[in-house]
Computed example of a mutant assay.
Amino acid sequence: MIWQLTQVLWVGGLWVLHFGLLPALAYVGLAPLLVEDVGRQVSMLLVAFAAFCGGLQALVLVQAKGLSSLWRDMRGQLLLMAMVAIVAYFALYAGVPQALRWQLFCYLVLGLTGLLLVLQPVPGRARLARH
């Protein structure tokens, strides 16, 4: 249950921001610079939240399948890829704040990784179905 909740929160949040909130703010008529600033600030918070949720998901996966599942299991590989995208996002934010396109690229990699993670089965669910 923790796996699914954290997944909905971070993956859903990433996608809702760019396909729901920011277009709605632009449609309402807010100044484009204000919409861009809101997007940048909320994106940073969502990426930090994704790091927390991804860490929880990694713990759930390790409890269900063991430590080696982080690099042998597709879910673990996707979580590791998400963590790399998060680290790159914050490294670019701290080191090269003008590299907004690269930050957006990291954000999109994180979002696509999350979508691929949604398609994977929940850890431990298949084990319960066999018993």
Score class of each variant (00 low, 15 high):
residue 1 M to N: 11
residue 3 W to H: 06
residue 4 Q to C: 04
residue 4 Q to N: 10
residue 5 L to K: 05
residue 7 Q to N: 12
residue 8 V to T: 10
residue 8 V to R: 06
residue 10 W to A: 01
residue 14 L to Q: 09
residue 16 V to M: 03
residue 17 L to Q: 01
residue 19 F to Q: 10
residue 21 L to C: 03
residue 22 L to G: 04
residue 24 A to R: 07
residue 24 A to I: 04
residue 27 Y to K: 12
residue 29 G to L: 11
residue 29 G to R: 08
residue 30 L to G: 03
residue 32 P to E: 15
residue 34 L to E: 14
residue 38 V to S: 07
residue 38 V to W: 04
residue 39 G to A: 06
residue 42 V to Y: 03
residue 43 S to D: 03
residue 45 L to C: 06
residue 46 L to D: 06
residue 49 F to D: 00
residue 50 A to H: 08
residue 51 A to T: 06
residue 54 G to Y: 01
residue 55 G to E: 01
residue 58 A to W: 00
residue 59 L to I: 04
residue 63 Q to M: 10
residue 63 Q to H: 14
residue 66 G to F: 10
residue 67 L to R: 15
residue 68 S to T: 10
residue 70 L to Y: 07
residue 71 W to S: 13
residue 75 R to P: 02
residue 76 G to S: 02
residue 77 Q to G: 07
residue 81 M to F: 08
residue 83 M to T: 05
residue 87 V to K: 11
residue 89 Y to R: 04
residue 90 F to M: 07
residue 95 G to P: 02
residue 98 Q to K: 12
residue 106 C to V: 08
residue 109 V to L: 15
residue 110 L to H: 03
residue 110 L to E: 02
residue 111 G to H: 04
residue 112 L to G: 02
residue 115 L to V: 14
residue 115 L to G: 08
residue 116 L to N: 05
residue 117 L to N: 03
residue 119 L to C: 13
residue 121 P to Y: 12
residue 123 P to M: 12
residue 126 A to L: 15
residue 126 A to S: 15
